[in-house]
Design a protein around this nucleic acid. Sequence first.
DNA 1: CTTCGGAATTTTTTT
DNA 2: AATTCCGAAG
Length: 773
Amino acid sequence: MKDLFADLNEVQKQAVSTIEGPLMIIAGAGSGKTRVLTYRIAHLIDKGVDSFNILALTFTNKAAREMKERISLLIGGTEAKNLWMGTFHSVFARILRAEAIKLGFPSNFTIYDQQDCINVIKKIINELQLDTDIYKPKQVLGRISSYKNNLITVRAYFNNPELIQADTAAMRPKIGNIYQAYVERCFKSGAMDFDDLLLRTNELLTRFPESLAKYQDRFRYIMVDEYQDTNHSQYLIVKALASRFENICVVGDDAQSIYAFRGANIKNILNFKKDYPDAKIIPLEQNYRSTQIIVEAANEVIAKNRDQLEKNVWTQNPSGDKIPVYRALSDADEANYVASEIFSLKMSQQKKNKNFAILYRTNAQSRAIEEALRKKNISYKVFGGLSFYQRKEIKDLLAYLRVLVNPKDQEALLRIINYPARGIGDTTVNKLIVGADQQQKSLDEILNQIELLGNSLGINKPTIDKLANFWTMIKSFQVLLKTENVYEVAMKVAVTSGILKTLKEDDTPEGISRVENIQELLNSLQGFVDEQTQLDEGDSSLNFFLENIALASDLDSRDEHDDKVSLMTIHLAKGLEFPVVFIVGLEENLFPSQMSLNTRQELEEERRLFYVALTRAQEKAYFTYATTRFRWGKIVEGEPSRFLEEICEKHLEILNISFTNTIRNHSGLNSDLFADDFAPRYPKSSDPVYKKLKGQIKPPQNLKSISNAKLANPVGGSVANLKIGDYVLHDRFGKGKVVSIEGDPENAKALINFENEGDKKLLLKFAKLKVLG
DNA sequence: CTTCGGAATTTTTTT
DNA sequence: AATTCCGAAG
């Protein structure tokens, strides 16, 4: 066993060796937090603590896996095997599987992702005959989610006049009814959403003292990483579990709290000392990651925030390069600058692709950058955005698998009942739903007896047969599942259901890629089976596979051996580090986001986000912004982000025109700003409620948007005379050859064969093509 | 019941 | 620009 203390500084040693009682480690950016955590766990085990009694909650599953590996290396042997490590969601999902029956859920409950939730809410809003302009499904879900995260159940909601009052004041008095219907429907479907995984865990621990005792006894040592981003629900779980032994160690940095929008409560970390008056607090302030310039610049920005714990992050590292600031003329220009900078650093300093990260505020920004990197043949990987498992074809096949595991999963069932098309239309589906409602049965129970019940539901004979056939097919898959492994079953499903056949009929590039995606899903099932069967206590059930997917994040698939530039949102970059980091799109209304300018709290979160972004960089950071950018199908003008102003100029290397000349005076926030945390949100004037109630009120004009007509049409003479056989250059698709042209001159479309992208049909008016000579 | 095409709507961040 | 929604024709 290796000497655990040899490569730690004094403060880190203290943090590692304090193992009893409550402890809060305030870990500044780059201060060796992960090292402390791993060593601390290794130290615990070294001191004779059974790894079975340790619970460590991390932010991603991948972080957990890696930490576990490192611990195994430190202590050797298989001691670390029993460690329970993972995200809140995955750890408690596992516990809930074992305990679900107590809560009235089947142990094979489904986990609904956000899209599933939104679909359920949409249906409810329609059924209640409410207006989806006022009750926007996504917003409603956000509201429900925040209730759940604050442990406000439906009953608690209706018992709380203040909440009802707040929603009524916001012109949305029916939120409670939607909430109620939503919870009922999830329950009937045997489904939990992400928030339920935490809420129901709380329910389990409060309603069943014996369960509480069991897990308190098991988890004698608890560690929570990224504590600043826990929400109230998570906070209560931790508190309940830790209350017996109080061996609770939380690690976090209030300056890096960036998930308030999904309920994270920065007060959890700010109030730790109140919860545990005996708590030791150890600040880790020495940064080992970044150059002095980067650390100082980051400190300058974060200092503008009012709500924070005092700390002083410093470094002994070399001072390093100034941070270049590039002012781009457009998003494409910005992307090209980044790409050529990467190219030249690779040449001059032998850097690898994987040494670079490009960080942005919104996923949509990746497009322009991808294009620029492709042009320079720099290989990259985009994280986040629309993930593999959210693609339609994947969700379709997964829906079949979900129904096999949990036939009550209504969302999945409705998704596949007529896909591929088998003549079961909306009319029939509605009859089924109404029938199920009247008879107090679930859809699968109706389908089980469809031949008996169909007539009384007003379904005609041929349709009954179709339903019966469909259901027999599902049943046959279920039988198969008893003897065959999940890969074989999924394969069978893909073929027998007709999914593969339907997809193969489409031979457009998109269609072909859909088939490939299905293939990839099948491969990953195969991989899952192989992996799980090799493990001693592997679980190769379909149920477990689906759970893994539901809770997987895109980051979990990150492979350090892959030599690729990483593109991701700043949120996703939390906890990572890269030698060179580009922070792009530093413009007002983009970063800080337009949506975050209403309250001081929101603006401060954007600033923390900036802090996170900058502190990812080890050797060199770059800032870029664009004066015009393609957004929402329009060209929009932008001005430099206020965050650039907040950094002392001596740390910056202004590459072209000084932004300080162009910067406006940011008076700070928009109108009625200093809204309090819990003040009810009154609808803004742009809110549809106002339009509905008071007739057409003009929304505030976006001052910055320029009419499309002038700029987006640089066709000029050249493209107007486009002929078949011409070679053209497209902003995104690159070089291509014109195959055909159709339509009147005003709205002419051209079919173009692009070298890298295949055939595309483009409207010339918008395509911004350059004809190559 | 299905399919197709035009219209409307949309953009923050995610376990 | 891209996705989703909706209505009409088949």
